[in-house]
Amino acid sequence: YIVQPSNYFKDKYKLVMASTLVDINKLSTCKVRVLNPMDVEVTLRQKADVGREELIKRIVSVIAEEEPEKVKQKHGQLRNVFEVSSTQTKLHQFMDQPIPDHLKDLYEKSVDDKSQEQQRSVAALLCKFGEAFSKNEWDVGLTNVAEHSID
């Protein structure tokens, strides 16, 4: 059979499912590849209706019979396709550095009701991206405050 996402699945979950060729005589369950392209965790409940199958009578060719051995041992585990650790490591380099003068006001406004650790993170973030903000009215920087009327 070929398993494909149902319209209900496409509408309800912000997930992408790959159409997968399965042999239901091999195992009681089949594995289909799902990608979560969004930044939020998605929970799928047991028995959730996620797809439909279609009987394939004749297979012309199969590109790969199964997952590579390494991946096979990690069934059910999730693989990151987006690495964030390098950014986080770099941010640590800016921890406990003095906040640039032109961002002190922004920092004070940003850290209300935040924990000590969060305040340190905000300070490090502002230090890291300090050059992105205008230092004074003559410095356009990478961002600029502009006023315009709304029709």
Binding site: Y1, V3, S6, L15, M17, V22, I24, S28, T29, C30, K31, V32, R33, V34, L35, N36, P37, M38, D39, V40, E41, V42, T43, L44, R45, Q46, K47, A48, D49, V50, G51, R52, E53, E67, H75, G76, L78, R79, N80, V81, F82
Partner: peptide, 24 residues
Amino acid sequence: KRVTVADDVKISGLTEALLDVYIE
């Protein structure tokens, strides 16, 4: 036939997963 999730599963953001499903 319906294709249903075999067990509760959480899929983190920006990841891909192999999902166990039943074909009922």
